[in-house]
């Protein structure tokens, strides 16, 4: 068994504009089961960060507990990270974000970590629209404890044990739209052509970007009776749209047929181009977005792609009007402005 990847990489691979090769975004070799969807999601994350020329040392990876929460070890090994208590990733991410708003926060969680033990934390991070890329690797089961149904397992779906799940499932995307996330998407680990742009859009987005990645558990939940198996997802996948992510200051070269395209300008000036098969599926209207999800669900289809986006919603720092600088850059003079400042405050209250 290999404990590390060979050092060599394809000699003709390009470097990105920050001067990094894709290898600089990799992590340790995965110890997850062979064929785990999480590894593909990890690979999509590496690809997205590489393509966006993100500097690895400007990233913080936050996670909780579970198979998914192990993955920060497998990407961006030169970045900061915090592996927190089960379900508590959003709190730790909030604290870190408050202390240093300049870093890029990637929160990794799973369906157990998010929809069961961490549900309360998840809900409040959404409400506050924390500037966090929240990626939920959703396989519908507790893979680390031998595959019990999780809260996102669809009603009637049966994993390796063969017993259909009797409970209603939680749709994390609907919940996220409901509770105030400003960028909500669903991807599939087996489709990187869709997942990589989704992650890139999330990184460019200012506010809470939630991506529910259907990421099959190859060991416990890849049966023909499961709705989160590779085969089932491929057969039932329905995309809201395909899209290009055009980063800031990059010329738009692609040509889009009229009437089927929608442009969303992100906070940093980059643009998301959506190509829609069905023009009624507006992704900026919250009510329509929830309707779309419910409609496809009633047809037995799984809606993926960018589901909802609103770049105008204020993120936590803007809401609480916190300092624009990371706390570690504040000097004594900033924090204790002196007697004059105090006198001015007092005067304003007289």
């Amino acid at each position: 068994m290999s404990f590390e990847r060979p050092d060599f990489r394809h000699p003709k691979l390009a470097k990105n504009s920050a001067g990094y090769s894709r290898k600089d975004y990799e992590g340790a070799i995965s110890t997850l089961c062979a064929g785990c969807g999480h590894d593909s999601t990890t690979s999509a994350l590496i690809q997205a960060c590489f393509e966006l020329s993100i500097e690895p040392h400007r990233v913080a990876k936050m996670s909780g507990i579970g198979c998914s929460s192990k993955t920060p070890a497998y990407f961006l090994s030169r970045s900061h990270g915090f592996n927190s208590v089960h379900g508590r990733m959003p709190s730790v991410a909030t604290g870190a974000n408050m202390a240093n708003r300049d870093l890029l926060y990637i929160g990794i969680s799973g369906d157990g970590d998010t929809a069961s033990i961490g549900m309360g934390q998840f809900a409040h991070a959404l409400r506050r629209n924390l500037n966090l890329n929240y990626i939920c690797m959703n396989n519908g089961c507790y893979g680390l404890t031998k595959g019990q149904d999780s809260a996102t397992a669809d009603k009637g779906s049966a994993g390796k044990k063969g017993k259909p799940n009797p409970y209603t499932s939680i749709d994390l995307c609907e919940l996220a739209i409901e509770l105030g996330a400003s960028y909500v998407a669903r991807g599939f680990s087996g489709d990187k052509t869709q997942l990589v742009p989704l992650i890139k859009g999330a990184i460019a987005h200012n506010g809470l970007a939630f991506i529910d990645v259907i990421s099959p558990c190859v060991t416990f939940n890849n049966t023909s009776t499961s709705t989160k198996s590779y085969e089932y997802v491929r057969d039932h996948i329905e995309a809201t749209n395909t899209f290009d992510f055009v980063p800031l200051q990059q010329e738009i070269l692609a040509h889009y047929p009229e009437g089927t395209s929608q442009e969303v300008v992100m906070h940093d000036g980059s643009i998301i181009h959506l190509h829609k098969a069905d023009s009624s599926k507006d992704v900026t209207d919250r009510m329509k977005c929830v309707n779309n999800l419910e409609l496809e669900k009633s047809k037995g289809r799984l809606l993926t792609g960018l589901l909802y986006v609103n770049p105008e919603i204020m993120e936590t720092h803007d809401i609480i009007n916190s300092t624009l600088r990371p706390l570690n850059s504040l000097t004594e003079a900033d924090l204790c402005p002196g007697n004059n400042a105090l006198q001015m405050i007092n005067a304003s209250l007289r």
């Binding site: 062979a34 064929g35 969807g37 593909s40 690979s43 680990s189 990187k192 099959p216 190859v218 590779y230």
Partner: peptide, 10 residues
């Protein structure tokens, strides 16, 4: 092959 991409990724 179940096309899980594991080989592509590694």
């Amino acid at each position: 092959c179940i096309e899980c991409d594991a080989c592509v990724d590694i």
